[in-house]
Amino acid sequence: MSTLGRYELLRPLARGGMAEVYLARRRVAGVEKRLVIKRLRKDRSRDPRFLELFMREAQLSMSLVQQNIVPVFDFGRIGDDVFLAMEHIDGKDLGSSLAKDRGSGMSPLLAAFVAVECCQALDHAHRRPENVIHRDVTTRNVLISWDGEVKLADFGIAAVVGDASGALGTPGYMAPEQARAEPTDARVDIYALGIVLWESVIGEHVRPSTDRAATIAAAKSGELPPIDPELIPEGLATIIRHATANDPGERYSSARNMAEALDNFLLSERARDPGPAPAQRLAEWLKQRWADARDELSAPMPAAAGAVVSFLDDGVDKIGGSRTMRSIAETAADEGELDTPPPHQIIEDAPADRDSRPIPVVTMQT
């Protein structure tokens, strides 16, 4: 087991072209805190371009404090190690949950609930003074806790308005202007969320993900299949069409406006089906989806491990109970994706003409 300052790195969870992700812990006053460490690869940490991108992610992420956004609460440098620490979510990501049973999604009511929670996260980011754009809203970046909470993760390629060009993101969710590397604004996130909403109901990709060239071409042209009226009611289909319009001017002008439309749909669905609260239904859906892991979920932690907590910072602890903690990165490892980036994801290097001067980095005391 290796250490990184005050953190113990328990095991690797994922590795990409820019960074490595680890399950980690920190012991404080006899209590074990589990978290996720994202560390810039050593071969990248010496490159000012990648260092700048990583620092930007840390700075933007730490400025976003909202209940539907996975919090990043620590950032630093120890020798050649540049890293950030984020909350470890006790749950699963939406993408892998849908993949458990391809072609079988969630109810329109649940899909709308997940989308409206994501709208809250995006509205917070978009309304920041910097006008933060996520640029990679996908089902993999939507996390659902076992209690039915929804959080949006990974602002790793986020940008601010005025500096949001370049074909960065996942083609299956890209708006046409984003795929064509044209200047973009917050409406690319609206478009991507429309695709997430659509996929949540049908349980499969809207655009093909096995043929990379076809996916990119479809993203650039804005080509989308027709919405199946047998799966998606007209009220929700109207929201999806509005969100995924090829012309940005025809989309919802803000995440808040999209949330209002989704809220109206939820009200009508709840009037028709006044059962348990959406969050409770979502929690049950997730547990049923991962029924093969139920024994693991209910197993107590080893006595030596102590209580497991998730936390935002050193002063705010939230008891997570005795269940095994899970995260989006662990999900990727479970599915054999360790060291394998998503086949339909393209993340370009920083522009060659970017200022390459070294950037000061906060150094942590060990």
Rank of each mutant, 00 (worst) to 15 (best):
P12C: 06
L312W: 09
S298N: 02
G172T: 10
T170G: 02
S145K: 04
D295Q: 07
G156R: 12
V362H: 11
D90E: 10
A186W: 11
G76S: 03
A14W: 10
T324P: 00
F113Y: 15
P274I: 09
V150Q: 12
A283L: 03
R39P: 14
T331K: 08
V72S: 02
G91F: 02
A307S: 04
L262Q: 06
A261Y: 03
P276A: 04
F113S: 01
S104L: 13
L152M: 14
V31F: 02
S165E: 13
Y7G: 04
D349K: 14
E87Y: 04
E260N: 10
N68P: 09
I216S: 00
G95T: 04
R44H: 15
A291N: 05
H124C: 07
G103S: 02
E284W: 11
I232Q: 05
A175S: 14
G30E: 03
S63K: 12
P12H: 01
A115T: 07
A255D: 04
L266S: 00
S97R: 05
R212C: 00
G320M: 06
S356M: 14
P183A: 03
G103N: 07
R56V: 09
A164T: 12
V31N: 00
A85D: 06
D353A: 07
E8Y: 12
G91K: 02
H134N: 11
R281W: 06
A159T: 14
L84K: 09
L94E: 01
E32C: 08
T340H: 11
A192W: 10
Q345R: 15
S45N: 05
P358N: 01
A112R: 09
S104W: 12
G16H: 10
V72F: 12
T324C: 08
T366A: 09
L282G: 00
T340A: 01
A159P: 14
V201R: 12
R127I: 06
A350G: 00
A307Y: 06
G17V: 11
T238L: 07
T366K: 08
F155G: 01
D123T: 12
P274D: 00
D313E: 06
G79C: 06
L122A: 05
G79P: 11
P225C: 09
P276R: 04
Q345G: 02
P360G: 01
S268Q: 03
G79S: 08
I190W: 07
R11E: 15
D263S: 12
V142L: 05
A291F: 13
A175F: 13
R56Y: 13
R44E: 09
A237Y: 14
G275A: 11
P171C: 10
D163N: 15
L267H: 08
G16T: 05
P342L: 09
L152G: 07
S104R: 15
R326F: 08
F83Y: 14
E182F: 04
A58Q: 05
I239V: 14
L262P: 03
T3H: 13
L262Y: 04
E269F: 00
F83C: 05
G315A: 01
